[in-house]
Amino acid sequence: MSWLPCPDPIPGDARAADLIETAIIPRARDLGGLEVRRALPSAKRQMVGPFIFFDQMGPAEFVLGEGFDVRPHPHIHLATVTYLFDGEILHRDSLGTELKIRPGAVNWMTAGRGIVHSERTAPETRARGTRLFGLQTWVALPASHEETDPAFSHTGESELPVIEEGECRVRLVVGKAWGHSSPVNVFSDTIYADVALEPGARLPIDADHEERALYTVRGEIEIAGERFPPGQLLVLRSGAPLTVRNPGPKEARFVLVGGETMDGPRYIWWNFVSSRKERIEQAKAEWKAGRFDTIPGDADEFIPLPESR
């Protein structure tokens, strides 16, 4: 396939300020010995489409014997979406899943009425040293699906559509775009694409999805003549198509995320998301009382319920 035409801007074309609603600079946090940069939720924006949580993990390099450890913890009423650029993570959950995720694949874990999982560096990976760089996002479930049964799906790198045209390369992680569809099952209109642009390359982004944002991963991108460095979440204005260009001398990489507006407000507390405050209170009490399922092979540790948050 071919991209849509991408003419150079001319006087009177939309400015970046007309195309970008807000720019969010992530805040740094520590997650199990790994620095993460959290873009959502933020004071400027809680959600973009169904995406209510957006973390950049790393880039980090672990010395021999060290690694990444997030002990067993619970979720309700959301789906976690894990996607890596470098390294690997061993995922275990209370359904009995035990699987490594590597770059280019996607883990989609539906918490539904409740699930417990852990994310670690495997012992054999620690023994040789490793790096880690990737994204973890949470997708809020529509109210009608919040109490669905928990589930886990892994879609390998070779199963995700890759769209190449000239110096543009797009891996479609979730959803439909540019005439292609990802095989990952979703509960509402959702888009997630991993985009790499060589120097001078351009990519048109249409306005088919109600809410959209770009997260700059590596290198600079240019929108309507304005440049944006890595490590920003650019929330795009609804209904406004635009073109992204790589103005720099090296590859630029970003992800496009979004989808339809959520079907009402969402409450978020620790690892719980819900359309109902009382359901979060119930989940808090159940975790504190030990009423969630445990993880086969990883039941000796857990993250306690925070005293306050």
Rank of each mutant, 00 (worst) to 15 (best):
I115V: 14
L64H: 12
H117W: 04
I115M: 07
G49T: 03
M109K: 04
P26Y: 04
I115F: 08
L64Y: 03
H117M: 02
T125N: 13
K44M: 15
I25Q: 14
L95Y: 07
I76G: 08
D30R: 09
G87H: 05
G104W: 12
G114S: 09
T80F: 04
G87M: 04
R131N: 13
P74N: 07
D55A: 11
F54S: 12
L99F: 02
A111P: 14
E88W: 01
R120L: 15
G58W: 09
G134W: 02
G104C: 07
D55M: 11
T97R: 08
R38W: 01
P50E: 10
I52G: 15
R92S: 12
I115S: 02
Y83T: 02
E35R: 08
P74I: 03
L40M: 10
P50G: 11
T80Q: 07
F85R: 12
T130M: 04
D69E: 14
D69K: 14
D69L: 13
T110I: 07
R128W: 01
A60S: 12
R131C: 12
P103Y: 01
R126I: 00
P103A: 05
R71L: 12
E119N: 04
T97S: 14
P59R: 06
R38S: 07
E124C: 03
G32A: 08
G58E: 06
D55F: 03
G65E: 03
P103T: 01
E88F: 01
R45E: 15
L64M: 09
G112A: 02
F53A: 06
V70C: 07
Q46V: 10
T130C: 11
F51W: 15
L84V: 03
T110D: 08
R92K: 15
R71S: 13
R38A: 06
R113N: 11
R37L: 14
P74T: 03
F54V: 06
R29W: 07
V48P: 00
E35D: 10
V81A: 11
A122M: 06
A39T: 09
L99I: 07
L34R: 01
G33E: 06
A127S: 15
S118Y: 09
L132W: 03
G32H: 07
D55E: 12
L132K: 02
F54K: 01
K100L: 05
L99Q: 15
Q56C: 03
A39C: 10
T121R: 09
A79C: 13
R113V: 01
T110Q: 14
H91T: 00
P41F: 14
T121E: 11
V70A: 13
L84I: 02
T121N: 08
R131I: 08
F68E: 05
